[in-house]
Structure formats: structure tokens, C-alpha cells
């Protein structure tokens, strides 16, 4: 009997492959830093305007060693995580509901599409008007940025559940509630996860910009503040920290996606 099986090997060879692809990704990044160093070192761009990595990277180290960066990172993460969590906790159930009831989805999809098209930063003055300068307005703008992709993808996922699987579940003795929890929800999960990842990256972009406009802490704030106070090496150091944060965020979500939906791309 038998028949061939594929995939499945999750042992050390897979870990090695991951490490190798990570290592390969580091080469062009190293190249980028080299070019960056060179254009300053050769005098093509003034070092006062563009801090070379040989100076910026030690500044990153100093930020961490002095502990100065932690309060800012903490402030950004608090705003981002809270806003994103609220967007997910509201967006997923509401999206599932909209997507499960066809006439509701037909009625509401244009509204969602319209609201999604508004650039989130355009809403910042509105939120500031209602919530004042500070934490609440920052969280509100993160929610706004993250909720639309989460909502839209969840609706799409719920609408796209394979009817044949629902049919099979009925013949296997599943009732409405069981079909929703055991079939519709897991079937929509890969699409929901895509929405979460999009939502997180939008939230990240918007948060940094919002911190530059209306905050006195956070990673976005120190980037702009360093520029105002002519601490240019520190400004580039903060930008580097921000970039690493973004990469970590993306990898974290990819990891979570693989953990929750291992069957994805294999059906």
C-alpha cells in the first residue's frame, strides 16, 4: 500500500535550513552597511548628515547600556500592543459574524472598504480632538490602522469557507454551533492570520508617525527629537533600533502563523 509522503521532517535538518537562509539573508544586509559606510568614508555625503554605521552602531549599544532606550521602547510597545490587541479582539469576531451572514456582508463591505481607504494619519487630528494629546489618541490611531485589514480579511475568510467541508461536517453529526467552531473558524484562520500580519505592519507604520506628531515618548518621538536637538548619530541609532523592531515583529508574526496554521499552502 503506502503511497508517497512528503513534508513532515521537522527535525534538525529543517532548523539547519532555516539558519542557512538566515545566514544568506545577512550577506546583502552586510553589503548595505558597507555601502553606507563607504559613501560617508569617501566623502560623498557629509558625516554630519549621514552618520556612518561605524558610529551609529556603537550609539545603539550606548542606548541599551545606559537603559535610556527602554522607557521609549516600552512606551511604543505598550501603545502598539494594546491597540493591536483591541483591533484583533474586536475585528475577528465582528468579521466572522459579518462573513457568516451573507446579507450583512453584502451591506457592510462597501462601508468597510470606504473607511479602509482613509489614510489612518488623516484620522489623528480627529482622535486628538476627542481624546486629547497622549496615550489614548495614540492607541486609538493604532486600532484604526490595524482593524480594517483584520476585519476585511476575516470577512473574506469566513465567506470563503469551503461549503463541501460544511456539508461533510453535517453528515458527520455536527450542528450549527459545531460547524462554526470546528469548521468555519479553523478554515478561515489562514486568511485571518494574513489580516493580522497586515494589520500589525500598518499599526507599526502609523504608530511611529503618530509618536512624531503627538507624543513625548516612544521610538518615533526620540527619532524626531534627536533631529531637533542635532543628535544626529543618536537619530540614526534610533532608526536602526526601529528597523530591528520591525523585522522582529514580522518574524514573530510569521512564526505565529506557521504555528497556528501548519497546513497552510499544503492543501
Amino acid at each position: 500500500m503506502g503511497g508517497s509522503t512528503q513534508g513532515g521532517s521537522q527535525g534538525p535538518s529543517r532548523t539547519m535550513a532555516r539558519l542557512r537562509s538566515f545566514g544568506i539573508a545577512l550577506v546583502p544586509i552586510g553589503g548595505l552597511f558597507l555601502v553606507w559606510e563607504l559613501i560617508v568614508g569617501m566623502g560623498w555625503v557629509k558625516a554630519e548628515l549621514l552618520t556612518p554605521p561605524s558610529i551609529a552602531i556603537p550609539e545603539v549599544w550606548r542606548y541599551f547600556a545606559s537603559g535610556e532606550i527602554f522607557s521609549h521602547l516600552g512606551a511604543s510597545l505598550r501603545r502598539g500592543a494594546l491597540g493591536f490587541a483591541i483591533a484583533a479582539v474586536v475585528g475577528v469576531p465582528v468579521g466572522l459574524f459579518i462573513g457568516s451572514v451573507r446579507w450583512v456582508s453584502l451591506g457592510l463591505s462597501p462601508v468597510i472598504e470606504f473607511l479602509r481607504q482613509l489614510p489612518p494619519l488623516a484620522m489623528l487630528p480627529v482622535f486628538m480632538l476627542f481624546l486629547g494629546l497622549g496615550f489614548q489618541a495614540q492607541v486609538a490611531i493604532v486600532i484604526w490602522a490595524a482593524i480594517w485589514p483584520i476585519l476585511l480579511n476575516t470577512v473574506t475568510g469566513a465567506l470563503g469557507v469551503d461549503e463541501r467541508l460544511k456539508k461533510a461536517a453535517r453528515t458527520l453529526g455536527a450542528g450549527r454551533r459545531e460547524i462554526f467552531l470546528q469548521v468555519a473558524l479553523p478554515a478561515a484562520l489562514p486568511t485571518i492570520m494574513t489580516g493580522m500580519r497586515l494589520g500589525a505592519s500598518y499599526a507599526f507604520l502609523v504608530l511611529v508617525a503618530a509618536e512624531m506628531v503627538g507624543a513625548d515618548s516612544g521610538i518615533g518621538f526620540i527619532i524626531l527629537n534627536n533631529q531637533y536637538t542635532f543628535k544626529i548619530p543618536q537619530m540614526y541609532a534610533a532608526i536602526l533600533i526601529l528597523a530591528c523592531l520591525g523585522i522582529a515583529l514580522n518574524y514573530g508574526l510569521l512564526w505565529l502563523e506557521r504555528l497556528l496554521t501548519p497546513w497552510r499552502g499544503n492543501t
Binding site: 463541501r164 467541508l165 456539508k167 461533510a168 461536517a169 453535517r170 453528515t171 458527520l172 453529526g173 455536527a174 470546528q182 469548521v183 479553523p186 478554515a187 484562520l189 496554521t261 497546513w263 499544503n266 492543501t267
Partner: peptide, 27 residues
């Protein structure tokens, strides 16, 4: 529909998020 009349579909209709055992345990 009811489990006393089980159906095997042309397209299998297995649940990809469940293991083989998980699929058999579903009913």
C-alpha cells in the same frame, strides 16, 4: 443528514487542520 448514513465524498472533504486521527475522531 445523520451519522447513521455516512458519506464518503469524491473530494475527500477531510479537515486539513486536523491530523489523520483528529479527522477520524471528529464524528
Amino acid at each position: 443528514p445523520g451519522p447513521e448514513r455516512a458519506v464518503v465524498f469524491q473530494h475527500f472533504a477531510l479537515f486539513p487542520w486536523r491530523t489523520v486521527t483528529g479527522n477520524v475522531e471528529f464524528p
